[in-house]
Design a protein around this nucleic acid. Structure first.
Lengths: 192, 192
DNA sequence: CGCGACGTTGATTTGCCTCAACGATTGTGG
DNA sequence: CCACAATCGTTGAGGCAAATCAACGTCGCG
């Protein structure tokens, strides 16, 4: 069952009683996405927070030059949403798309408040998750500002060796902030 | 009174009762920092979350080449901390320093848990703050990846015109991800 | 099979860095 | 209160990392 994966993840950060778990379950909605299917498109309002049970997703936007720019990936046990749009309920500036066939659990914004009052530990859970996500993004700034493209690539493949196999190279290049051609040349140089 | 500023800020996001406010106050510690004074240095463990009541701070680190790289600023009504170090209680990879004379309120980590159980609304407050901070950092990635140095500079000075006066140019350049010389040339070109 | 998606390779260009030298301003100790 | 040192900003020359553009190979899939 998909929601069991989420429960396992939550338990890593907050202890949930049996009754709290049962209170939580009705708030969750299972969604299956095909490869390349979108769950959010630019201009739409983001209505939910998405937990990836199994699969891989990306959040990206289209630049003025018409190219795709990826800002985030999410794989198993990661949350993903356009929090800006979700919070303000304004049109999103991003797209969220499944890279491979993906199962997600959606937690709708309009019932989230209710959940937090019924199960305050869920608010705590999200506080902790967000704190870690924000801390990670500070580290990402650190890498972007100080490492060359080559160093960033090397750092990424050693940190997430499994991940590299799952996404097309041009997406990885986009996420790391350089061109697909440049990544191809890096590979050639390093005989990877 | 310094803590009144914090209370005003909290009330923008969660309604606090009189008793809750009184419960909160003993957890806060006022600190005054002189210009250039550090409240966290690389290698130390970050023990608290800092709320800037009045003033301006920066979080930065020293690169391998020996230059400073700024990752975050904080002015009035912003929180600042190395959340990585704070969470894991491991030595920090960053420095936090007052750019001008600054008053901060510290919320110590080791009593934070206790506060959250006594006043759950504070956990909610931080969940909301972190969500906004994380959303903002996603937008910052967007700008970094798609805009040229010149565009980023222009975007920043129009978004935070007041802020530009308060920090030395070389710090602004560092935060925006380019060299101080480059910023100087931008200014010359634009007659600012 | 044929087309679209993905990756490669080379030639050329460019945005920004680095280094160095030089004003201008601020602040501090004698 | 002045002298001198930091600190901060400016300007120019030269260089490099990575982008852009274009053409071509290859694989998987409808």
């Amino acid at each position: 069952m998909a929601s069991e994966n989420l429960l396992i993840h939550i338990r890593k950060f907050v202890p949930l009683s049996k009754t709290e778990e049962e209170l939580l379950l009705p708030y969750l909605k299972n969604i299956s996405l095909k490869k390349k299917e979108h769950i959010l498109k630019e201009g739409q309002i983001c209505t939910a927070n998405y937990f990836v049970v199994k699969g891989c997703m990306r959040m990206y936007f289209i630049t003025e030059q018409g190219t795709e720019q990826i800002v985030q990936f999410a794989i198993d046990n990661w949350w993903l949403a356009d929090l800006m749009s979700l919070d303000a309920q304004k049109p999103s500036q991003f797209n969220i798309q499944a890279i491979e066939a993906t199962e997600v659990i959606a937690l709708d914004k309009n019932i989230q408040e209710e959940l937090f009052t019924k199960v305050p530990k869920m608010e705590r859970y999200f506080r902790i998750i967000l704190q870690k996500a924000f801390a990670a993004s500070v580290m990402r700034f650190r890498y972007i500002f100080t490492q060359s493209g080559e160093e960033r690539f090397h750092h990424f493949i050693t940190s997430f060796p499994d991940f590299v196999q799952r996404v097309p190279q041009y997406m990885l290049a986009s996420y790391l902030g350089f061109s697909a051609e440049f990544l191809s040349k890096l590979r050639a140089k390093k005989n990877i």
